[in-house]
Amino acid sequence: MSVLNESNNGKELRIVGFLCNWCSYGGADTAGVGRFTQPTDLRIVRLPCSGRVNPLFIVKALLNGADGVLVSGCHPRDCHYAEGNFYARRRLEVFKRLLPTLGIDPRRFEYTWVSASEGQRWQKVVSEFTQQVHALGPAKFVADAPEFDVLKVCAE
């Protein structure tokens, strides 16, 4: 997306998306089949359910260089496993509160619901979230251990 690329010197950022197999992954597919243009910063990880999302997936991604993390599942009441997204909603909402304390902008993480038929909505979610992350710029992350630098020098 040209508009997005201009905001960050044409550079893509790394956004990780955890999508549930039954709704949001299907929704992303619908968006693709419908040929809706979307930013390409998002890398999708397919999970069985948003209830499978361990908050640690999100921290692990953010601490290891992801600039944003998006979690998307079925709409509440529509979960393939009846109640997985209800648990996810509580868990992710509580987890979100930890990010500011860690010094990570909470806008780098969002969770939302997209059904398999909502290709257009998926396009909107991805575009808006990517824009939001681009506005924040690349994330800081904790550097590697010093011995890794030494190893890199040795390898050279």
Binding site: V59, L63, N64, L98, V142, D144, A145
Partner: peptide
């Protein structure tokens, strides 16, 4: 097992979560 601040912080986040 690396002596990196990232892994140490990660552990504290695991504990907190």
């Amino acid at each position: 097992q690396a002596d990196s601040t990232r892994d140490k912080l990660m552990f504290q986040v695991i504990h907190a979560v």
